Simulated scan of single mutants.
Amino acid sequence: MIDPRKSRWNRRAVLAGAAALPLMSFAREEAMKDRAGRAGMLFGVAVRASQLREDADFRAAITRECSVITPELELKWAWLEPQRGQLSFTDADQIASFAARTGKAMHGHALLWHLSIAPWAAEALGDNPDWTIVRRFLASVIPRYGEVTNTWDVVNEPMEMGHRMDGLRPSPYLAAFGPDYIRRALEDARLFAPRAKLFINEFGLDYDFQVERDKRYLLLKLLEGLKKSGAPIDGLGMQAHLEIAKQAHFDPRALAQFFDDVGSLGLEVRISELDVKEADGTLPTAERDARVADAVRRYLDVAMANRAVGTIGCWGLTDRYSWLESPGGKAGANRGLPLDSALHPKPMYHAISEAYALRGG
């Protein structure tokens, strides 16, 4: 955990503010970060700087519940450098400062992602495949957050089935540098963050469809190749965007085998973006919440049986700020995050808490 007294992000004037945080409705329950800590693990969520700035109750919930926070947008290339040479760290710095003063780590997400490359950079790489353009970006970002960030998603979502035999996704990076761009990015990230853990982060690995079986197989081949080449990779982020409509295709044995295969490479696994997309918003709220919790519980039962898993992270903490669309066209938020829109814990919250108990938390 980051010591805010030693961090460049420390702001002495705000340290006293923690004592004044509003009490949450679940104050008598044990905080999730404490359950995770007893299990030797972490609990994290994705946040936006604007949410931390504008919502005091949300800040209080994050402060209480989380041991690590992930900037949802603010470390992505298109956000940081929309114009060449004009980097703006204001929002990322705010998240880093909040993390430091509340004793949390900030997970670095995500350095290279096909959907967040700055348009000028994509154009420049198309005209002239010059790795120094990528290296300059990495050098500008990674060392800046070295005191508060000890894990990075170096490459986000590099896989997509149906294009190539190796399963790599067509992207400006692949077009400019070929498959070796992943290794080069990891090596540069290690250069700029020699003590951080470096991850590839991927989705669509959770169910027993042919496309997901193929993706797991080819992703393992990629990881094996990176390890064999000596690339500095420390782990895999499994996004775990679960869907109620796909639960009939959940095969715990296949998922357990994948966790085993990743762990056998000496890699850590982060459950990095856990949430649940509902299928039917017309059901009673209690039934909706029970279905969400059941999907999470079944998934985490498999994950927690494997010691390679070290973090559970959700893509948001509360339905108040869910990115998921309302299910079935019904008005009202998707209920696929641990807290509801009023910041009350739901059955999903307890399913995660129970998962830590499987590890002694």
Rank of each mutant, 00 (worst) to 15 (best):
residue 1 M to A: 13
residue 1 M to R: 08
residue 3 D to R: 09
residue 3 D to Y: 06
residue 5 R to Y: 14
residue 8 R to V: 15
residue 16 A to H: 10
residue 25 S to K: 06
residue 32 M to Y: 03
residue 34 D to C: 08
residue 36 A to T: 07
residue 37 G to K: 12
residue 39 A to L: 06
residue 43 F to R: 03
residue 45 V to M: 11
residue 46 A to W: 03
residue 47 V to L: 07
residue 49 A to C: 12
residue 50 S to A: 14
residue 55 D to Q: 03
residue 58 F to W: 04
residue 63 T to C: 15
residue 64 R to I: 10
residue 66 C to I: 06
residue 66 C to L: 09
residue 67 S to I: 03
residue 70 T to F: 11
residue 71 P to L: 11
residue 71 P to V: 08
residue 72 E to H: 06
residue 78 A to Q: 04
residue 79 W to P: 00
residue 83 Q to Y: 09
residue 83 Q to E: 14
residue 86 Q to L: 08
residue 90 T to H: 09
residue 93 D to T: 15
residue 99 A to I: 15
residue 100 A to Q: 13
residue 103 G to H: 05
residue 103 G to P: 11
residue 107 H to A: 14
residue 109 H to D: 06
residue 111 L to I: 07
residue 116 S to Y: 03
residue 117 I to E: 03
residue 119 P to G: 05
residue 123 E to I: 05
residue 124 A to F: 02
residue 129 P to W: 00
residue 139 A to W: 07
residue 142 I to A: 10
residue 147 E to F: 13
residue 149 T to G: 13
residue 150 N to V: 09
residue 150 N to K: 07
residue 153 D to V: 04
residue 159 M to A: 04
residue 161 M to P: 03
residue 161 M to L: 14
residue 162 G to A: 10
residue 163 H to C: 08
residue 165 M to D: 15
residue 169 R to G: 15
residue 169 R to Y: 09
residue 169 R to I: 14
residue 171 S to P: 00
residue 172 P to F: 05
residue 176 A to F: 07
residue 180 D to T: 11
residue 181 Y to E: 02
residue 181 Y to H: 07
residue 184 R to N: 05
residue 188 D to T: 05
residue 188 D to H: 10
residue 189 A to L: 10
residue 194 P to M: 00
residue 199 F to G: 02
residue 200 I to W: 02
residue 202 E to P: 11
residue 205 L to R: 00
residue 208 D to T: 08
residue 218 L to D: 11
residue 223 L to M: 07
residue 226 L to G: 07
residue 230 G to D: 03
residue 231 A to N: 01
residue 234 D to V: 00
residue 237 G to P: 01
residue 245 A to D: 05
residue 250 F to K: 02
residue 253 R to H: 09
residue 257 Q to P: 00
residue 266 G to H: 01
residue 272 S to F: 11
residue 275 D to V: 01
residue 283 L to G: 06
residue 284 P to Y: 08
residue 287 E to N: 06
residue 290 A to R: 12
residue 294 D to S: 04
residue 294 D to R: 08
residue 295 A to L: 02
residue 302 V to P: 03
residue 303 A to G: 12
residue 310 G to I: 11
residue 312 I to W: 03
residue 314 C to H: 01
residue 320 R to F: 09
residue 323 W to A: 15
residue 325 E to I: 10
residue 325 E to Q: 14
residue 328 G to S: 11
residue 343 L to G: 04
residue 343 L to W: 02
residue 347 P to R: 02
residue 347 P to Q: 05
residue 352 I to Y: 05
residue 353 S to A: 15
residue 354 E to N: 12
residue 354 E to T: 08
residue 358 L to S: 05
residue 359 R to V: 11
residue 360 G to L: 09
residue 360 G to T: 08
residue 361 G to F: 11
